[in-house]
Simulated scan of single mutants.
Amino acid sequence: MNPRETGPRAVAINVAANTNMPGVRGPVRPDGTFEYVPIPERRPTREPVPTYADLDLETEIPEAERGTPVHFDPEFPEAGGERYTYGDEHGVKARPLSELERGDYLLFYATLSQVGEPAPWQAPEWGAYLVGAFRLARAPVTGEAYRDLSREERAPFRNNAHVKRADFDARVLVLGDPDGSRLFERAVPLSGRETGTAANRIVTDLSADSGRGPWWRRPLRFDAAATDELLAILDGHAVERCF
């Protein structure tokens, strides 16, 4: 990232169910409402976690996956979580997240399948959409630093999916401020109108990403000026400003 500027910065990362895990995407409707569907939990956990069958989902989960535990990360209270937490064991995401500071933003985007006739601002079939945001309550905690925290300091992360794993593996943990974090009611597009693989101006003009290749799998970085504009788009659900 660039040297610290005036105002918060942001990083957006890809999360949630996809055609690889568990084989379907969550839906997005013409009014922008959507369903947040976690990915499967593929590692042993210290305690039982919900399965897809336990969740009240509109999305039709493949029968072979219905009994699979879910990796509920990011954790959103609006979807049944305890706090706004996120953890990641992959360096490609952990590195840019570790550079954030208190007051910065972690944004989440997901690939979603279109349900019904798409609105004029929606890509047909599927697209990438911003679905939630954390305003950081504190600087991110590295996996090494977490191991040195006191029990009291660890408490806010106790319900995070990586903390629940039998072997803690997060390289970074993020805690969202409840006054500035939320799972969105309506998704905001990152894809163009014509196809899900085409990036709109949030990616090509506001983020540091070129929008070429599989951009919908990469972390997207936003400097202070871009974050300010992006927050205005999100607060007003001003989808016309995405193109």
Rank of each mutant, 00 (worst) to 15 (best):
N2W: 05
N2C: 05
R4Y: 06
R4D: 08
R4E: 07
P8Y: 04
P8A: 13
A10Y: 07
I13Y: 06
A17D: 10
T19L: 13
N20C: 07
M21Y: 06
M21W: 11
P22E: 11
V24I: 15
V24R: 03
P27R: 14
P27Q: 03
G32L: 06
F34E: 05
F34H: 07
Y36R: 07
V37R: 03
V37W: 03
I39S: 09
E41H: 13
R43S: 15
R43I: 12
P44T: 14
T45G: 13
T45W: 12
R46M: 13
R46V: 11
R46Q: 15
R46L: 15
P50S: 04
T51A: 12
A53Y: 00
D54Y: 12
E60T: 13
I61C: 10
I61R: 10
A64T: 10
E65D: 14
G67C: 11
T68G: 07
P69E: 09
V70F: 10
F72Y: 13
P74T: 13
P74F: 09
F76A: 00
G80P: 14
G80V: 09
G80H: 14
G81Q: 04
Y84A: 01
Y86W: 08
G87W: 00
G87F: 01
D88P: 01
E89Q: 14
H90E: 15
G91E: 08
G91Y: 02
V92I: 14
K93A: 03
A94F: 00
L100K: 08
L100C: 14
R102S: 10
Y105M: 06
Y105Q: 07
Y109F: 15
Y109P: 10
A110E: 08
T111K: 09
S113Q: 12
S113D: 12
S113A: 15
G116Y: 11
P118H: 06
W121N: 05
Q122I: 10
A123H: 07
P124W: 11
W126S: 08
A128N: 12
Y129R: 07
V131G: 12
A133F: 00
A133D: 00
F134M: 00
F134G: 00
L136V: 02
A137I: 04
R138F: 00
A139P: 03
P140T: 02
V141Y: 00
V141P: 00
T142K: 01
D148N: 11
L149C: 01
S150E: 11
R151D: 12
E152A: 15
E152N: 05
R154F: 08
P156Y: 06
P156D: 04
F157L: 10
F157V: 10
N159I: 00
H162I: 08
R165D: 01
R165N: 03
A166H: 15
D167M: 14
G176C: 03
D179T: 15
S181Y: 03
F184G: 01
P189N: 03
P189Q: 02
L190A: 06
S191R: 08
S191W: 05
G196Q: 09
A198W: 07
N200Y: 06
T204R: 15
L206R: 03
G213W: 09
W216D: 12
P219E: 06
F222H: 04
F222S: 07
A224C: 02
A226V: 02
A226P: 03
T227L: 06
D228H: 10
E229I: 02
E229Q: 12
A232E: 13
I233K: 07
L234G: 05
L234N: 03
V239F: 01
E240D: 15
R241I: 04
R241Y: 01
C242E: 04
F243T: 05
